[in-house]
Structure formats: C-alpha cells, structure tokens
C-alpha cells in the first residue's frame, strides 16, 4: 500500500481579493483510484484544479502530486482536460496530434489512432469547425494518447449526449483498470456513482461531504416516520449534527441523516409513530441533501 497519495491537497484556500473561493480544502486521492468532485456551479471545483496544476497560485495550503508540488516534469505523467476548450481552433486534429508527439516522451500513436477511429473524427478538419462534442473528443484523445498515470478532468462530458457520455466513462474506467489515478468533476451524478471510488462534495468552496461511495451509502440514509396524526414537533431535530435536512408533509416526517441513522430512528420512535423505517439513498439524493438547502420545494395543492 503506497504511503504517497497520487494527489494530496491539504488546507487549500484560495482568495480573490476579499472573496474566498475555496476554504480549507483537504482532499487525498489514492493511487489507482477514481475520485469524483461534485458541487454546484461556482463551488470551487475548477479553482481547485487550477491551483493544483499551477495555473493559479493557492493563497494558502499545499498541493502535491505523487508527493511533490507540480513541476514541468509532472506533466509527462499527468494530463488535464479543462472544462472550456483550450485547443487551437485554427489547427487540425492532425496538427494537435503532432503537437503531442513532439511534446511528450510517452506519446502512443497507435493509441491515438484507435481513439480517432473510435470517435470517427476527421484529421484534416480545423478544430474550430468541429461540434462541441467533437472538440471534447479531441481533448480526450490528446489526454489519453500519452497514457498518463494521472488524469484530471473538469466536467469531461458536459453538454454531450448519453451515448457519448458512456464512451467517456468507459475511457476513464479503462484507464483506471490500467492503474491510472483519476480526479474528475462532474454534474452527472450517475457517472460518479458508477465510476468513482471516492466522492467529495463542495459547496461555496467548502468540503461538506467526503468519503467512499460505499461508505456514504452506508451512512447517509433517510429515516422515515409515519404518524397517526399530524407530525409532532421534534425538538432539536433539524439542528442535530447528524441530520442534514428535515422534511414534513402531512403525517410523514423524513429526516435525511449523514450518520447514525439507527440513533435517529430511535429518537423518532419516542414520539410513538405508527412506523419508522430507515431507507437507502442513492448518490443523487445524498448530493441534493448536502447541497440543496435553498432549493425551492414545489408542492402540489394541499
């Protein structure tokens, strides 16, 4: 078991003037694992990537890749796929591949060819003339063609159709099966649920959820209590540290808990409900509960 994390972010803070974009973030990614970074827009995911890769400077904290701060040599083994296209619009796919061939020692032309055929792209067309999905494909081909040990991807399949998204996911899984470490951010919770070992959720620059997908599913539950009459007032439930969110509707009370669901269930039992049940949550539910405090709840007529 390696004692060095593939990616280690510790106490990372980034301020722009008086605005704190990321506060005290600590995130450690084991080698050979896939870590999904989730969060609403503007929660600090892209800022974190930029500071990790030295595209911007951290105000405070350390960022390390394989035990050392990022240096030029790191990029022989690490590729970054940014959210916005960083390609040269006036160059063709063939030009970009040649660029990679000259820039990296580990460029694998055969692999690049496989991927170009997989995505059915034209080599001689200017990248600026390609659709957004095709441009993303180009960025991915460039990233995978050097067989990197570490991949950092910012919304790798945003705005793409589901078939394409599955292809991207397959590429990530294949890379991970080959031992690569992957850190990626996504709005596609389903993707993260399938592919990630570990999940971290950011909100307003702060880490609010961090754990393996399995352990999160094990501890994040919803405790549902059904009462004979209207739901009684339960003192201190909403402010209980174990509870993320409380929902009451008619005779049903639901407490979304982050841990110790059994304990919360016992508490609710004291109010003599007809039934108390602990139910599983999927990652999307977990995410919405952690993040969506201010989501307007649409109710039908009473």
């Amino acid at each position: 078991m390696s004692s060095t994390y593939a990616i280690a972010i510790r106490d990372f803070t980034k301020r722009y003037g008086s605005f704190e974009a990321v506060s005290n973030l600590t995130l450690e990614v084991e080698p050979g694992s896939i870590c999904g970074l989730l969060g609403p827009n503007g929660s600090g995911k892209t800022t974190t990537f930029k500071c990790l890769l030295n595209l911007a400077r951290a105000t405070f904290g350390t960022m390390q890749v394989e035990g050392a701060p990022v240096q030029p040599a790191t990029f022989e083994e690490l590729t970054y796929v940014p959210e916005r296209s960083a390609l040269y619009e006036w160059l063709t796919l063939a030009d970009h591949l040649e660029f990679n061939r000259r820039s990296y020692r580990k460029y694998d032309a055969k692999r690049a060819d496989e991927l170009v055929n997989l995505f059915r792209l034209e080599r001689k067309k200017k990248v600026g003339k390609l659709s957004k999905g095709q441009q993303t494909a180009v960025a991915l081909i460039l990233a995978f063609s050097i067989r990197p040990r570490i991949l950092v991807l910012d919304e790798p399949a945003s705005g793409l159709d589901p078939v394409f998204q599955r292809v991207v996911l397959d590429l990530l899984i294949e890379a991970a099966a080959g031992g690569a470490t992957i850190l990626f951010s996504s709005h596609q919770i389903g993707q993260v649920e399938r592919a990630a070992d570990r999940v971290a959720i950011l909100k307003n620059g702060k880490l609010i959820v961090d754990g393996t997908v399995d352990s999160l599913k094990g501890s994040e539950k919803v405790v549902e209590a059904i009462f004979d009459q209207m739901v009684p007032e339960v003192d201190g439930l909403a402010t209980d540290a174990r509870v993320r969110r409380v929902e009451r509707s008619g005779r049903i009370l639901r407490a979304y808990v982050k841990e110790d669901s059994e304990g919360i269930a016992r508490r609710l039992s004291e109010y003599a409900p007809k039934n108390v049940a602990v139910m599983d949550l999927n990652l999307e539910d977990i995410f919405i509960n952690a993040v969506g405090g201010e989501i307007p709840m649409i109710r039908g007529g009473e």
């Binding site: 890769l53 030295n54 595209l55 030029p72 040599a73 790191t74 990029f75 022989e76 690490l78 590729t79 970054y80 940014p82 916005r84 296209s85 960083a86 390609l87 040269y88 820039s103 990296y104």
Partner: peptide
C-alpha cells in the same frame, strides 16, 4: 486564451 494547453506541458513557462 486557453493557456492550459501550453502550461500543462512538461516544460517550464519561462523556458
């Protein structure tokens, strides 16, 4: 505009 392309290559910026 899109400087990530050259700044995530194995070469120092100054060089």
């Amino acid at each position: 505009d899109g400087v990530e392309m050259v700044w995530t290559k194995p070469i120092a910026r100054g060089r």
